[in-house]
Design a protein around this nucleic acid. Structure first.
Lengths: 331, 331
DNA sequence: GCAGATAATGTAACCGGTTACAATGGTGAC
DNA sequence: GTCACCATTGTAACCGGTTACATTATCTGC
């Protein structure tokens, strides 16, 4: 069943049928109605490939995601997909893992499928690391970074100001009487968000006139268990901290487990406002980095841009702290 | 840059270039080498839409997922996407939500994009509910159900035998001395897996010569908080159970929170072996429904089938219980 | 009644690949 | 030398849409 079949059945030309399909106004109401009736009756659907070839787009957007199994990324993908669908885009998903070479390969795969744009979730590096693949992609289609920052042409960034959020966290803790904050972060030091948080932590201490203690800024592998092991080891060595901030809820959970095991109690703040933070006992206070704003905003940007409008290259939104039980503890 | 440009630059015909691109053996080594060199030099990539039009496939598979933000589904999507990519398929993702009408619409969207197959994650209904959209999809492309069961032509099911897993859970509990098990499940009673679990629960009791107590089979909304509220209410009313099985870790977490709040301790088993089960204190024993086997298996099936081979319509794998702290408690 | 504008429709080229079939050239057998 | 055969290559039709441009029909004002 092709457009020519429909045209023949209606006694009109293919152009007219095409016009009807694409809501082109240059068709008489009567003709339109007849054509629509035949299309309906025959259950005709235009061939997407032919359409793509003619229009040079299939309205597909590629999402390059480090790992959808990670709840933070999956939340982003979920929000992006929904927004994209509303705007009439389909989502091509590619989960690259953390390796640079794999990200590069996945990006190429997406571009080969001729997506209209690419959205990167947890895939952007700091400038000092090789971003050649992103620049190469941006040479072909607009690239959107979720919660990351990169100064490259045709790369658009929508992110949460986690630096300020972290700074505020430090202020909160110190205002509440904490004096020696342990900052726990995972080792992906190339990630933009990671550097922002660390910087915010330092700024916060500075604001309060406190010196940074290198022993209280600790790097751990990602995951509950490594974080738990690290905090456990620190507590065995005598601790030396009276509050904890973790760069991610996963690490906060590990820290909390260690605290509980030692019968210790102190303020604890995590990041990402994930489901995990609600599942522990006590629940964990966490920074919400506003994916629910960032993702739809990025899609709006994308839609505007592809529609030929101008769009800002960067949009920052501020975070919000979700208070739960773990912050009050031990005060 | 088209295939004709490449052909002209090489002094060969488009057919030859096409043969080189597609690894057709009917090309002399010398010619192949020359053509590849030019392709390389020009950075030529075949137009995916033209290719799709000619071959009537772009090697894309649609995944229809209820909700990727849910960790169980996102795990499935992650595993599926990886396996599909290895086989040379790209993944079109559509998250429909739980509404039947939305699922239907999403399925149509995927089919319009001319995917080679559709994989349904958390989207299959029991037979008594309307499955017309699935049958309609199966009339166009093979449909694969992850952890669900449906007897329709061209629908392939790969699932975990959660009925037996549940039955075994009941046996375990009773062997450990539990006498009155509370079964907590969410209200999506149309889901195949849900009915299987309930049936397994009943069979388990039957096996052990115990009568089913309707008061101890409770339905709750999905989520930690509703489950917590329900168990809390039951405990206030006096309890009457000495062990809990939850149809999902999320509910198990809620149940555990209620138990902790009441200072109660009893064996608890969840389903899905999710990250949540490791984050609570104590950790929660949970049934692993083998997504890590099911998903790659489904993709293998899909690949074989699209390759023209025969493939079984159903594959069942058995679950495995992951022992953690919550099962020993109170024994 | 007619020039000129406007609305509706049709024709055919084009998008960029794949591939059936035809054509060419070189080989060895006899 | 001729023929059959095989490996290699080329020509042109085809996939199924979109759309520039041409054409025809209708309407307007004078």
């Amino acid at each position: 069943m092709t457009i020519r079949d429909i045209a023949a059945r209606c006694g009109v030309s293919v152009a007219t049928v095409s016009r009807v399909i694409n809501n082109n106004p240059n068709v008489s109401p009567k003709t339109r109605e007849e054509v629509l009736a035949v299309i309906q009756a025959q259950g005709y659907t235009p061939n997407a490939f032919a359409r793509g070839l003619g229009l040079n787009t299939m309205r597909m957007v590629g999402i390059l995601c480090t790992d959808v199994a990670n709840s933070f990324y999956s939340k982003a993908v979920s929000l992006l997909e929904r927004s994209l669908r509303v705007k009439g885009f389909d989502t091509l998903l590619c989960c690259s893992g953390a390796q640079l070479a794999d990200k590069k390969k996945c990006l190429e795969l997406l571009l080969q499928k001729k997506v209209d744009a690419v959205v990167l979730v947890g895939a952007a590096f700091r400038e000092k690391v090789d971003n050649g693949h992103i620049a190469a992609a941006a040479a072909q289609v607009p690239v959107f970074l979720i919660n990351a920052w990169l100064d490259l042409p045709n790369v658009y960034c929508v992110y949460c100001d986690e630096k300020e959020a972290m700074r505020a966290n430090v202020h909160h803790m110190i205002a509440a009487g904490v004096r020696r904050i342990l900052y726990l972060h995972d080792m992906v030091d190339w990630a933009w968000a990671g550097t922002q948080k660390l910087e915010g932590f330092r700024l916060g201490l500075q604001d309060c006139g406190l010196a940074e203690n290198p022993d209280l800024v600790r790097t751990t592998e990602t995951g509950v268990t490594p974080a738990q092991a690290l905090v456990d080891a620190l507590l065995i060595q005598g601790g030396g901290f009276d509050g904890i901030i973790a760069s991610e809820d996963l690490l906060a959970v590990g820290a909390q487990k260690a605290l509980l095991a030692h019968g210790k109690v102190m303020p604890l703040i995590g990041f990402n406002d994930s489901l995990l933070a609600e599942c522990t006992t006590p629940t964990i206070t966490s920074v919400n980095n506003m994916l629910s704003i960032i993702c739809p905003t990025a899609v709006t940007l994308l839609d505007r841009l592809l529609g030929g409008e101008q769009a800002p290259a960067r949009i920052a939104v501020s975070a919000s702290l979700v208070q739960r039980e773990s912050f009050q503890l031990g005060l």
